[in-house]
């Protein structure tokens, strides 16, 4: 077995006096699909936000592709990572947000093209082709020149996924991507994620409340409770055969 692409080693995170994560240890292998479930406030989102460098851990290490994400070596000592160090690693990670966070002043095609052109310095024509292809794939090939405000929530979220995919990340993070959507729009977004999970070989971490969906696509499911990973294993181990009481209670509430 090869080295995991992401390793969390005893990661803690506090906001002020509130301890959100109390020692997370976690391995994610390349191409592995990981679903993170758990009650709200359990720190699920914080895990992927730290991986995306939006939140700095209070202590512990996050190793991405063999390199420490939040620390770097300087004169033989490990010091806090600077922006340059973060940017080097961040390039391999993409994220889709709960509230889409599309750029409202750009068309959806521009939303997809901006980062590859400016960040990766790729040729415009190539990026355009790839972006159109990706928007086609998420079913929005006919809306290239629309602005985000002209789209439905489900369409916006599909654009957000195309935007992240065009950057060709090795790890994709999904932060409760369906919870801001009207119920009838959830399906179209899950379909796209399912398609990515089946056909792309990147690692995926999904924070989600869609239990059936998680069971269906995840190689590994984590149950996070009160800041620790209370249960982990394959989808069927965790969701169907766990003896953890809190997990049973949690699942019961979700799958009436």
């Amino acid at each position: 077995m090869t080295e995991p692409i992401v390793k969390f080693q005893d990661v803690h995170k506090s906001f002020g006096d509130t301890q959100v994560l109390k020692g997370i240890n976690l391995d994610i292998n390349s191409a592995e699909k990981v679903a993170v479930i758990g009650p709200s406030g359990s720190g699920k989102t914080t895990i992927i936000r730290m991986l995306m460098t939006l939140e700095e851990p209070t202590s512990g290490d996050i190793i991405v592709g063999g390199t420490n994400l939040w620390k770097m070596e300087k004169k033989g000592q490990m010091v806090r990572a600077n922006e340059k160090h973060l940017r080097e690693i961040r390039g391999d990670i993409g994220m889709v947000f709960q509230h889409f966070n599309l750029f409202p002043h750009m068309t959806i095609l521009e939303n997809c093209m901006t980062a590859p052109i400016h960040v990766k310095k790729e040729a415009k024509e190539e990026v355009r082709d790839r972006s159109i292809q990706m928007l086609d794939r998420v079913g929005l090939g006919d809306k290239l020149n629309n602005y985000p405000s002209q789209l439905s929530g489900g369409q916006k979220q599909r654009v957000a996924m195309a935007r992240a995919l065009v950057m060709r990340p090795k790890i994709m993070l999904f932060d409760e991507v369906t919870s801001a959507l009207d119920p009838e729009l959830v399906g179209e977004v899950l379909e796209v994620i399912r398609d990515i999970a089946k056909n792309d070989d990147m690692a995926m971490v999904l924070v989600t409340h869609e239990m059936d969906f998680a069971l269906d696509i995840a190689d590994k499911v984590l149950f996070l409770d009160e800041g620790v990973i209370a249960e982990q294993g394959t989808a069927s181990q965790v969701i169907e055969h766990s003896t953890n009481e809190r997990l049973q209670e949690f699942l019961h509430r979700f799958r009436k």
Partner: peptide, 19 residues
């Protein structure tokens, strides 16, 4: 969320501001 999305696309702080 706009800053966060730009960060997730690996923009530098200058690019985030400018773009």
């Amino acid at each position: 969320g706009q800053t966060e999305a730009a960060t997730a696309l690996n923009m530098s702080s200058f690019q985030r501001m400018r773009l």
